[in-house]
Amino acid sequence: AQFIESYVCRMCSRGDEDDKLLLCDGCDDNYHIFCLLPPLPEIPKGVWRCPKCVM
């Protein structure tokens, strides 16, 4: 059997509050909206890229 790795935030390495986890459309990394600098108030609509992919 294969275990699917749960999504974890690249900043805090936690997978809780998954309703606040953002998936980068560039590299598929995950980030909590409140772990980003600056934090986001809510999940953005449409395409989102993490700080690494925006640079």
Rank of each mutant, 00 (worst) to 15 (best):
I4V: 12
C9N: 00
F34G: 13
G26W: 04
I4H: 09
C27N: 01
Q2L: 09
Y7K: 14
C9S: 01
Y7N: 15
D16H: 06
F34R: 13
P41L: 14
V47H: 10
I43G: 05
K20E: 09
D25S: 11
P38Y: 04
F3Y: 11
V54C: 10
K52S: 07
K20M: 03
C53S: 01
V47E: 08
V8P: 09
L36W: 06
C50V: 00
Y7H: 10
Q2T: 15
R10F: 03
C24Q: 08
D19W: 08
P51V: 08
C27Q: 03
M55T: 07
D28Y: 02
C35W: 01
L23V: 14
P38A: 11
M11S: 08
C12W: 01
K52H: 07
K20G: 02
D25L: 04
D28M: 04
S13H: 06
R49S: 05
S6E: 10
L22G: 00
L36F: 06
R10N: 11
M11C: 10
K45L: 07
D25T: 12
F34V: 10
K45C: 08
N30V: 14
L23H: 05
C35S: 03
P39L: 03
D16Y: 09
L37A: 12
K52V: 09
Q2S: 14
D18G: 15
F3M: 14
K45R: 10
L23D: 13
N30W: 09
Y7S: 14
Y31I: 06
G15L: 09
C35L: 01
S13K: 07
L37N: 15
D18W: 13
V54Y: 10
R10K: 14
E42W: 05
V54A: 08
H32I: 01
C9F: 02
H32T: 00
C24R: 03
Q2G: 04
F34H: 09
P41M: 03
K45P: 11
L23K: 15
P38S: 07
G15H: 04
L36S: 08
M55R: 09
S6W: 04
E42I: 12
I33G: 15
F3S: 13
K20R: 08
D28E: 09
R10Q: 03
F34K: 15
H32E: 00
V47S: 13
D19I: 07
G26D: 11
I43E: 11
D28C: 04
C12L: 05
H32G: 00
R10E: 10
S6L: 06
C35Q: 00
D18F: 14
L23A: 13
H32K: 00
S6G: 11
L21Q: 05
W48Y: 03
C9M: 01
Q2R: 06
G15K: 14
G15C: 15
A1C: 03
S6F: 08
G15W: 07
L40F: 02
K45A: 07
V8C: 06
G46F: 05
D18S: 13
E17T: 14
W48A: 03
H32R: 02
D16N: 14
E42M: 04
C27I: 00
G46S: 07
C50P: 00
K45G: 12
C50A: 01
I43Q: 13
L23C: 09
L22Y: 00
P39M: 05
Q2I: 15
L21N: 04
P39H: 01
I4T: 15
Q2A: 06
L21D: 01
M11H: 05
M11R: 13
C53K: 00
F3R: 13
S13I: 12
W48L: 01
G26Q: 09
L36C: 15
L22R: 07
L21M: 07
F34S: 12
I4L: 05
C27F: 00
G46H: 14
S6D: 03
H32P: 01
Q2N: 12
M11D: 11
F34T: 13
C12K: 04
V8R: 10
Y7C: 14
C9T: 02
D29A: 13
M55S: 15
C27T: 02
V47W: 03
L36K: 02
D18M: 14
E5S: 09
C27D: 02
G15R: 13
C12T: 02
C27M: 03
W48D: 02
S13T: 11
V47G: 11
D28Q: 05
E17N: 15
A1S: 06
L37T: 11
R49E: 07
D19R: 11
K52E: 06
V8I: 06
I43Y: 05
I43D: 04
G46C: 03
C9D: 01
P38V: 10
E42S: 06
P39I: 10
C53D: 01
P39S: 13
P51A: 06
L37F: 07
V54K: 12
M11I: 09
G46M: 06
M11F: 08
G26C: 12
P39Q: 05
M55I: 05
K45I: 06
G15T: 13
G46Q: 10
C27Y: 01
C12M: 02
H32N: 02
C12I: 00
E5V: 03
P39V: 09
E17W: 07
E5C: 13
D29V: 06
P38T: 05
K20P: 11
V47L: 04
I43C: 05
R10P: 04
E17L: 07
D16P: 12
K45F: 03
A1W: 06
H32D: 00
P38N: 13
G46A: 11
